[in-house]
Design a protein around this nucleic acid. Structure first.
Length: 661
DNA sequence: ATTTTCGAGATTTTT
DNA sequence: TCTCGAAAAT
C-alpha cells in the first residue's frame, strides 16, 4: 500500500481509492474531507499514473487550493504544482483567456470587483436621473445581478454581443426602467471590456455551450474532475461541471449538506443531495473535535428540519467543557476573551496562533481588535478590508490598468490622485467629448489637450507620464513601470506625508508580488503579463496567504469554513447577531433562513479542536436597536452540556468603561 | 474652481 | 469606524 494511504480509516480509504464514475462523498465536519480528497488526488497520479494535466480539482478558496498543492507535494514527494487545482472562478478565467476572442471580444479583459460595480451603478443612476431616495445603489446592483442570474448565458446573446446591444439601443425608448439600467450596465462592461465575478462563470458557460471544439478540448483534457465543498455550488457551477465531465464521466464531489452557508450567493444544496451517482460514501467519524464540542454542535444542528440525519461521532475523549460566557457589555466580553487567551496560553504552553475568534459580521471585529491591542496580543484580522481593496493598492493598480487598457474607471480613480487641480468641471468636458467621439475618457483628454482646446498644466503632466509609461511597458518590467509612475506622479511623496508608513509598506508588498509574478511567468511580457497579473490578483484575497505567523486570528464565521483551530471563541452570539436580525421574525419564509443561520453556527462550533467558547453580552446594540438577548441557538444546547459563566458586577462594568477611554 | 472640513448616516455573509 | 455630501476655506 502507498505510504500516504496508511493514515486513513476504512471509509476514507474507500473514498480515496475510488477511480472511475460519479462518486459522492458525504462527510461531516472534521471527518477528514480534505485529507481524503488529497489522498485521492495522489492516488490518481501515483497509483493510476494519471497526468496532473488531466485532473481538474476545484476548491472553494485559493487558500484551500494552495494548501492542497503543498500537501500533495509532501505526499508524493515530487515537484508538483498543477494549475488545475484552483477555484472554479480561476478555472473559468483559463477558459476565457483561451477562447473569449471568438465572441468578438478583446483577448484582454478586466475583472470588476464590488467597488467597481458600485461606481458603475452610480454613474448609471446619474445618467438616467435616478435619485438615491427611490432607488439606491444597492437596488441597482441587485437588479443587475438578478437579471444576469435569471438568463445566465442567455444574457450574453441578448445584450453583450455587439449586434444584440445595437438592437437594444435602437429600441431603448421601449425598454422598461429595469431593462434600461441593465442595458447601460452592459454598455459599460463592453466599453472597457470588463467582467464581474458572475460573468466569469456565465461567459465560460456560454463558450462551452456554443463552441463545440472548445467544449471538446476541455472534455478531452479533463479525465477526472473533483469538487470540494460541493454543497455550495450554484446551478451554473453544476451546469459547468456536467458539461466538462460529459465525456469521461468521472465526477467526484465531496461535501456536507449541514455546512451549506452560501445560499445568498445562489448555492444550491439540492444539486448535492440529488446528485445522480454510482456510489455514495458516508464519512461520519469526526477526528477534529473533542466529544464535548461535538455534542454541543450536534445538539444545535438537530433543530434543523431540512437535513439528512447523520450525527457525527468521535473516539476522542471528553475534553474540556464548552463554555458560554455572558458579559454585561461588549467590552467586557472582548476583555474576557483576551484574558482567557493569555491564561490558556500559559497553562497549555501554546502560542497565539492556537486561538481563533469568530463573529457573524465583519463590523463586529472592531471591539475585538481594540481589546487585542489593549492586551498587547498579536493578531491578524482576516477579511474586512482585503489587501487588494485598500485604497493605496487600488490606486496603484488603477495606474497600471490605465497604462494597460485606458479604462474609464481607473482613469477617474487616479486622475486627481494626488491632487493636480483637476475637478468636476474639467472632467465633465472630457466626458462630454468622450461620449461624442465614442472614445475613452483618457483618449478624450489626450486629444483635447493635444489640440489645445483645453489647457491644463496638471493634465498635461499627467499625460506625458502615462504616455512614457505606455511606451516603456512593451519593453520594460512591470515593476519598473510602476516605480516610475508612482514617483513621477508624486503618489509616493503624498503617502510619505502620512504619519504612519503602513500604506507605503503595502505598496512595497504589492511591488514585491509583481516581481515574483514576473519571475514565475517569464513566458509572458508587456501588456499580456500585466493583464494576466491584474486578472489573477482580482481573484485573490488576503485570506488566501499562507504565512499567518504565531498570531491570534479573527475572521467571520463564513471565512472559517474548511479550517480548523485548537481554541475557538464564537463571539457576539446574541439574537439579531446570529441569527442575523433579518431572519429573526417568525414568518414562514424566514424559517429556512434561520436554518441557514443555524448551519452557520454549526460550522463555527465545529471548527474547534480542543476548546470552544460561546460568548455574548447584554447592552445596547445598534443592530437590534436595543438591549441584546442571548442567541436562541444557545438555548438549544442542553444545560448539562455547557458551563454557563457570567459576570454582572457593576464595578467591573465601570472599570471597563473608564478603561476604554 | 478646487480642496478641505465637518457632521450625519449606515453596516450580512463572498468568489 | 468609515463613507459620503454639503458648506466653508483656499
Amino acid at each position: 500500500m502507498e505510504e500516504y494511504l496508511k493514515g486513513l480509516n476504512d471509509k476514507q480509504y474507500e473514498g480515496a481509492t475510488q477511480v472511475n464514475g460519479r462518486i459522492r462523498l458525504v462527510a461531516g465536519a472534521g471527518a477528514g474531507k480534505t485529507k481524503t480528497l488529497t489522498c485521492r488526488y495522489a492516488y490518481l497520479v501515483n497509483h493510476e499514473g494519471i497526468n496532473p494535466e488531466n485532473i481538474l480539482c476545484l476548491t472553494f478558496t485559493n487558500k484551500a487550493a494552495n494548501e492542497m498543492r503543498q500537501r500533495i507535494e509532501k505526499m508524493i514527494g515530487r515537484d508538483f504544482a498543477s494549475e488545475y487545482i484552483c477555484t472554479i472562478h480561476s478555472f473559468c478565467v483559463k477558459i476565457l483567456r483561451r477562447d473569449i476572442y471568438r465572441l468578438g471580444f478583446p483577448k484582454f479583459f478586466n475583472i470588476l470587483d464590488e467597488e467597481d460595480k458600485k461606481s458603475i451603478a452610480k454613474s448609471i443612476m446619474k445618467e438616467l436621473g435616478l435619485t438615491n431616495k427611490e432607488t439606491t445603489v444597492k437596488d441597482v446592483i441587485q437588479k443587475i445581478n438578478s437579471t444576469k442570474s435569471r438568463s445566465a448565458s442567455g444574457y450574453i446573446t441578448d445584450y453583450m454581443l455587439p449586434r444584440a446591444l445595437a438592437n437594444k439601443r435602437r429600441i431603448a425608448s421601449k425598454l422598461n426602467p429595469d431593462e434600461l439600467i441593465f442595458m447601460k450596465y452592459c454598455e459599460n462592461q463592453i466599453k472597457n471590456f470588463s467582467l464581474d465575478f458572475d460573468d466569469l462563470i456565465y461567459f465560460a458557460l456560454y463558450i462551452l455551450i456554443n463552441f463545440q471544439d472548445v467544449r471538446e478540448y476541455w472534455q478531452d483534457k479533463l479525465h477526472y474532475i473533483m469538487v470540494d465543498e460541493a454543497q455550495d455550488c450554484n446551478k451554473h457551477d453544476w451546469e459547468i461541471l456536467e458539461i466538462l465531465s460529459k465525456k469521461h464521466n468521472n465526477l467526484y464531489i465531496i461535501g456536507d449538506d449541514n455546512q451549506s452557508i452560501y445560499k445568498f450567493r445562489g448555492s444550491d444544496v439540492k444539486g448535492f443531495i440529488n446528485f445522480k451517482n454510482d456510489k455514495t460514501i458516508l464519512l461520519t467519524q469526526n477526528y477534529r473535535s473533542t466529544k464535548k464540542i461535538l455534542d454541543v454542535a450536534n445538539s444545535i444542528i438537530k433543530n434543523n428540519k431540512e437535513r439528512v440525519e447523520k450525527d457525527l461521532f468521535t473516539d476522542k475523549k471528553d475534553g474540556v467543557v464548552v463554555t458560554n460566557y455572558h458579559a454585561p457589555n461588549i467590552w467586557t466580553e472582548c476583555k474576557f476573551i483576551c484574558n482567557e487567551i493569555e491564561r490558556i496560553r500559559m497553562s497549555d504552553k501554546c502560542g497565539y496562533g492556537d486561538f481563533t475568534i469568530l463573529y457573524r459580521n465583519n463590523s463586529m471585529s472592531r471591539e475585538i481588535e481594540q481589546a487585542l491591542i489593549k492586551s498587547n496580543i498579536p493578531y491578524k484580522i482576516y477579511g474586512g478590508i482585503r489587501f487588494y481593496e485598500r485604497k493605496e493598492i487600488k490606486d496603484t493598480i488603477a495606474f497600471l490598468k490605465l497604462i494597460n487598457s485606458n479604462d474609464n474607471l481607473s482613469f477617474r480613480r487616479v486622475i486627481n490622485e494626488p491632487a493636480r487641480k483637476i475637478g468636476k468641471v474639467f472632467l465633465e468636458k472630457v466626458d462630454k467629448f468622450a461620449t461624442e467621439k465614442k472614445v475613452t475618457q483618457y483618449e478624450s483628454m489626450f486629444r483635447l489637450i493635444g489640440s489645445g482646446e483645453l489647457k491644463h498644466d496638471g493634465a498635461s503632466d499627467f499625460i506625458s507620464i502615462i504616455e512614457k509609461a505606455k511606451k516603456d511597458s512593451e519593453t520594460k518590467k512591470v515593476s519598473e513601470i510602476l516605480n516610475y509612475v508612482l514617483i513621477e506622479t508624486g503618489y509616493l511623496d503624498m503617502l510619505r506625508e502620512d504619519s504612519d508608513n503602513v500604506r507605503l509598506d503595502n505598496i512595497k508588498e504589492l511591488s514585491k508580488s509583481i516581481e515574483y509574478y514576473e519571475k514565475q511567468n517569464q513566458e509572458y511580457t508587456g501588456s499580456e503579463l500585466l493583464n494576466n497579473f491584474l486578472q489573477d490578483i482580482s481573484l485573490y484575497t488576503n485570506t488566501d496567504s499562507n504565512d499567518d505567523g504565531d498570531v491570534v486570528k479573527a475572521m467571520t464565521m463564513h471565512q472559517s469554513k474548511g479550517l480548523e483551530f485548537p481554541n475557538v471563541f464564537v463571539t457576539n452570539a446574541f439574537e439579531g447577531g446570529i441569527p442575523s436580525l433579518r431572519f429573526s421574525e417568525n414568518t414562514e419564509e424566514s424559517k429556512s433562513e434561520i436554518e441557514e443561520e443555524r448551519r452557520l453556527m454549526y460550522v463555527a462550533c465545529t471548527r474547534a479542536e480542543k476548546r470552544l467558547y460561546i460568548t455574548e453580552s447584554s447592552g445596547f446594540n445598534w443592530l437590534v436597536q436595543g438591549d441584546k438577548e442571548p442567541s436562541r441557538f444557545i438555548s438549544e444546547i442542553p444545560e448539562n452540556m455547557i458551563s454557563k459563566i457570567g459576570n454582572f458586577n457593576e464595578n467591573n462594568w465601570k472599570n471597563i468603561k473608564n478603561f476604554k477611554r
